[in-house]
């Protein structure tokens, strides 16, 4: 029997993010190759080797992040937002914060809890 996949709210963003990051990885490669020529054409030349290095490094980072998000998408199931109700309140007698299901305040012994 397969173990149940972990539920995660963040799974909602993982698929679009992974696709967009793979897309952007191509963009970083295009940046490394095209940016020096574009800059030269508009009269503000840049360091071509630096731009290419940055482009390759960022392409690797973007592809790695994209792969991670894709893995996260496959490894989890979509969680839903469960609003948390109030779990603590203050004892009306001594003012200590106590769990809401406590009938007697552990600090002062008061039963006047609401």
């Amino acid at each position: 029997m397969k173990p149940a996949r972990r539920s995660s709210l963040l799974r909602a963003v993982t698929l679009p993010l992974s696709i967009l990051l793979f897309w952007q990885a191509l963009g970083w490669i295009a940046f490394g190759l095209l940016e020096p020529a574009i800059s030269r054409s508009v009269g503000s030349p840049v360091d071509a080797s630096l731009v290419l290095t940055v482009g390759i490094v960022m392409a690797i980072v973007a592809a790695a992040l994209g792969s991670f998000f894709l893995y996260y998408h496959a490894a989890t199931s979509q969680g839903d937002f469960v609003p948390h109700g109030k779990t603590v309140h203050k004892c009306l007698n001594c003012g200590h914060t106590i769990p809401i299901d406590t009938s007697t305040c552990p600090y002062c012994g008061s039963r006047t809890l609401f």
Partner: peptide
């Protein structure tokens, strides 16, 4: 060239941030 480069680089960036 600029359209191609930005189409591959900044269009997904705006997509990523708007996804968030």
């Amino acid at each position: 060239s600029l359209f191609l480069m930005r189409g591959l680089l900044t269009a997904p960036l705006h997509g990523i941030t708007a996804t968030l």
